[in-house]
Simulated assay, not measured.
Amino acid sequence: MQKVFFISDHHFGHKAIIDFESRPFEDADAMNASMIESWNSVVGKNDKVFHLGDFSFLNREKTAHIVAQLNGYKHLILGNHDRGRSRSWWLDVGFDEVSEHPIIYKDFFFLTHEPMYMNKHMPFVNVHGHIHGQKYEGKNYFNVCVEHWDYKPLTFEQIRDSVVVSEEQ
């Protein structure tokens, strides 16, 4: 059975992110290798992954090499650092789908790179990235940045169940 996963902000090849976000890696190469391993430890070949932006700072060849190593059907929602490259560039490096705009998933989850304004009456949960180690308060936000989740994509069920539990509290 296919699982659906969510993750964001890998920043493959971005050496400075190690210091910016206190990532536990010696250098960008070690970070890249570890994040590929973490991804593949949970995502199977037939699973689907929504990457919510800021995927790679590397050139076309190196980015394609990383994408090829990652399990699953990969759907990229462009982040602020991805937008300097065209949608076709991202498809050429191996993403199966690329979205320039947010997506509503299962009529309830608003998938974006940057957190969107969500008042308490909004009928959605905003699954987002962009803010790395920070967190927005409230039941309408769910941050899937790699720093919060040991660099592993989260399943739809993990997010859904977390949202349901927080609503019951």
Rank of each mutant, 00 (worst) to 15 (best):
Ala33Arg: 00
Ala33Ile: 00
Met35Trp: 11
Ile36Tyr: 04
Glu37Pro: 00
Glu37Leu: 06
Glu37Asp: 11
Trp39Phe: 13
Ser41Glu: 08
Ser41Pro: 07
Val42His: 09
Val42Ala: 15
Val43Thr: 12
Gly44Cys: 12
Lys45Thr: 02
Lys45His: 04
Asn46Thr: 08
Asn46Gly: 03
Val49Ser: 13
Val49Met: 12
Gly53Ser: 12
Asp54Pro: 09
Asp54Ser: 15
Ser56Tyr: 08
Leu58Met: 15
Arg60His: 15
Arg60Trp: 15
Glu61Cys: 05
Lys62Ile: 01
Lys62Tyr: 12
Lys62Arg: 14
Thr63Lys: 13
Thr63Met: 06
Thr63Gly: 05
His65Met: 03
Ile66Lys: 09
Val67Thr: 13
Val67Lys: 10
Val67Met: 04
Val67Arg: 07
Ala68Ile: 04
Gln69Ala: 11
Asn71His: 14
Asn71Met: 07
Gly72Trp: 08
Tyr73Glu: 09
Lys74His: 07
Lys74Tyr: 07
Lys74Leu: 11
His75Asp: 04
His75Phe: 11
Ile77Pro: 09
Leu78Thr: 09
Gly79Lys: 05
Gly79Ile: 01
Asn80Trp: 04
His81Cys: 14
His81Arg: 14
His81Val: 03
Asp82Lys: 13
Gly84Asn: 15
Gly84His: 15
Gly84Val: 14
Arg85Gly: 10
Arg85Tyr: 15
Arg87Thr: 08
Arg87Phe: 06
Arg87Asn: 06
Ser88Ala: 12
Trp90Ala: 09
Leu91Trp: 08
Leu91Asn: 11
Asp92Val: 12
Val93Ser: 11
Val93Asn: 03
Phe95Trp: 05
Phe95Asn: 11
Asp96Val: 00
Asp96Ile: 04
Asp96Pro: 00
Glu97Leu: 13
Glu97Tyr: 13
Glu97Lys: 14
Val98Arg: 11
Glu100Val: 00
Glu100Leu: 02
Pro102Tyr: 07
Pro102Ser: 08
Pro102His: 05
Pro102Gln: 01
Ile104Phe: 08
Ile104Tyr: 06
Tyr105Cys: 05
Lys106His: 15
Lys106Trp: 06
Asp107Glu: 15
Asp107Lys: 14
Phe108Trp: 04
Phe108Asn: 05
Phe110Gln: 02
Leu111Phe: 00
Leu111Trp: 03
Pro115Asp: 05
Pro115Asn: 02
Met116His: 00
Met116Thr: 02
Met116Val: 02
Met118His: 03
Met118Asp: 01
Met118Thr: 04
Asn119Val: 05
Lys120Phe: 01
His121Thr: 11
His121Arg: 09
Met122Leu: 01
Pro123Thr: 04
Pro123Trp: 06
Pro123Ser: 13
Pro123Lys: 08
Pro123Tyr: 07
Pro123Phe: 03
Val125Gly: 07
Val125Leu: 04
Asn126Trp: 00
